[in-house]
């Protein structure tokens, strides 16, 4: 039996009728056509499917979409504001932290939420925060540098 669910994704409301065995990842990609969120392993290991659900990063492949009814979700498509990239996105470009780009949406969301919780992370804390995001191109050094650079920028120009 299909269920009618409501999702708020990147501030927009959607209503979709879905079978309960669909993952949130599939519903985002196939029903809402938000393909910025990637599908890697579908076992919770790679983090390509990372989205922010009610303020917390989660693996969209591990969530039954039906159970996300009424929840608010941020995907990579909602990270830039008013045509302006988020500082983490800027830093990834600047530091060459993007190769094929498959891990990037998930990496950016993990990095963004780390910096919101902990604006001055150590390198080790950065590495732990992205432990659930695998980069098959293995560009970790530049990814970590990019994230640390954002933290440094933020410390220089604290937001009022």
């Amino acid at each position: 039996m299909k269920h009618l669910i409501k999702l708020t994704v990147n501030g927009e409301e959607y209503e979709v009728a879905i079978e309960p065995n669909r993952s949130l990842l599939d519903v985002l990609r196939d029903d809402l056509e938000l393909t910025g969120t990637k599908k890697g392993c579908e076992t919770g290991d790679c983090g390509a499917c990372t989205v922010v659900l009610d303020g917390k990063t989660v693996n969209a492949c591990l969530i039954l979409a039906v159970s996300a009814n009424g929840k608010s979700i941020l995907t990579i498509e909602g990270v830039a504001q008013g045509g302006k990239l988020h500082p983490v996105q800027e830093a990834f470009i600047e530091h060459g932290a993007i190769q094929c780009g498959y891990c990037t949406p998930g990496m950016i969301l993990s990095a963004k939420s780390l910096l919101e919780e902990n604006p001055r992370p150590t390198e080790w804390e950065v590495r732990e925060a992205i432990a659930g995001n695998l980069c098959r191109c293995t560009g970790y050094v530049k990814i970590v540098k990019a994230i640390l650079a954002v933290a440094e920028e933020m410390a220089k120009a604290p937001v009022a």
Partner: peptide, 9 residues
């Protein structure tokens, strides 16, 4: 246990 994403769930 797992990753931040897994621990959040």
């Amino acid at each position: 246990l797992g990753s931040v994403q897994v621990r959040n769930l």
